[in-house]
Design a protein around this nucleic acid. Structure first.
Length: 302
DNA sequence: TAGGCCATCTGGTCCT
DNA sequence: AGGACCAGATGGCCTA
């Protein structure tokens, strides 16, 4: 009850800050967890663990609705006929190159074909799992979801995710800095956190970020001031967001002056909602923005 | 119609 | 040996 009681000693500012910091810590912890998980997953035996760590959860929660498109579904691909013709018409076909002479003797044509189909099926499943994971990533991205909104492309999803993580990391650092500043300044001004436990003891500190945030003005609670004052979303990830079919600069490196998400959430692109916790419920599930559609995207429902 | 995005097939490589 | 991963090739779909 120590840290909580200290939190309460700044009537309106610290609870806000701590709740925000807590959210960020949760997010960052999740990121770290994902990182360790990812390192595990990246070591070869991936597919079973992917299902254990992610897919099973997703499927249980009904997170995805089979968004993975399949032009050929589970039926044997048309190209199997190519293989058939290859192996039947040409003994030196590519399929046969895979096998030793012994194998060629042992395996019949149908066996070769079934083997090829089996390999293809595995690869298809692997790619489906990858797409499911990609959809999971899309779902937690601060981006409009919905049936009337086109999905982020894979590259846009990855770039946005990267920038989002960077933004959260920066925000956490800024949060830490603000908290330390508050305690530092309050100590010099005679504020003793450990000496009182009531909310009515003090008012908000003058000039405290949380005070100005009451009206949700220039400062964004999740962004450093230098970052949050800018208005454009020029970073690659965001340019990919505001225009799902980016004609431009998707792969450009983030500018040094801009924040990890380009500049700010404040103008979250044309038609984009501000993802800040003041405007809507924050992550883990940024579902609050799922109903918002981008004009350009609303025309398409892939 | 060109270009972007995607799914699939395929062969090679690496790992367990 | 079997499976996972990767990258190239190919073709379909969609949009500007």
């Amino acid at each position: 009850m120590t840290s909580d009681s200290e939190t309460l000693r700044h009537p309106s500012t610290l609870p806000l800050l701590y709740s925000l910091a807590g959210s960020l810590l949760v997010v960052c912890t999740s990121v770290k967890t994902m990182d360790s998980d990812a390192s595990r997953v990246s070591s070869r035996p991936s597919s079973p663990e992917v299902e254990d760590l992610f897919l099973s959860t997703v499927r249980k929660t009904g997170g995805f609705t089979g968004a993975v498109s399949s032009t050929q579904s589970d039926s044997p691909p048309e190209r199997s006929s190519d293989i058939r013709s290859l192996s039947s018409n040409d003994e030196d076909g590519l399929t046969m190159k895979m096998l030793s002479k012994k194998d060629r003797k042992l395996l019949s044509e149908s066996e070769l074909q079934s083997m090829r189909l089996k390999i293809n099926s595995r690869e298809r499943k692997r790619m489906h799992d990858l797409n499911i994971a990609m959809d999971g990533l899309r779902e937690v991205m601060p981006y409009a979801h919905g049936p009337s909104v086109r999905k982020l492309s894979k590259i846009a999803t990855l770039l946005l995710a990267r920038n989002y993580i960077l933004m959260l990391s920066n925000s956490l650092e800024e949060m830490k800095r603000l908290v330390s500043e508050i305690y530092g300044s309050s100590h010099h001004s005679g504020f003793h956190p450990s000496a009182c436990g009531t909310l009515s003891h003090t008012g908000p500190l003058p000039g405290h970020p949380a005070v100005s945030h009451a009206s949700h003005p220039v400062h964004h609670p999740l962004l450093p001031p230098a970052v949050s004052t800018a208005t454009s979303l020029s970073a690659p990830g965001i340019s990919a967001v505001t225009s799902v079919r980016p004609h431009h600069g998707l792969l450009k490196a983030p500018s040094a002056s801009a924040g990890p998400l380009g500049s700010s959430f404040q103008h979250w692109g044309a038609g984009m909602p501000c993802p800040c916790s003041m405007c809507q419920a924050p992550p883990p599930h940024v579902s609050g923005m799922s109903t918002v559609s981008i004009p350009r995207l609303a025309t398409d429902s892939k």
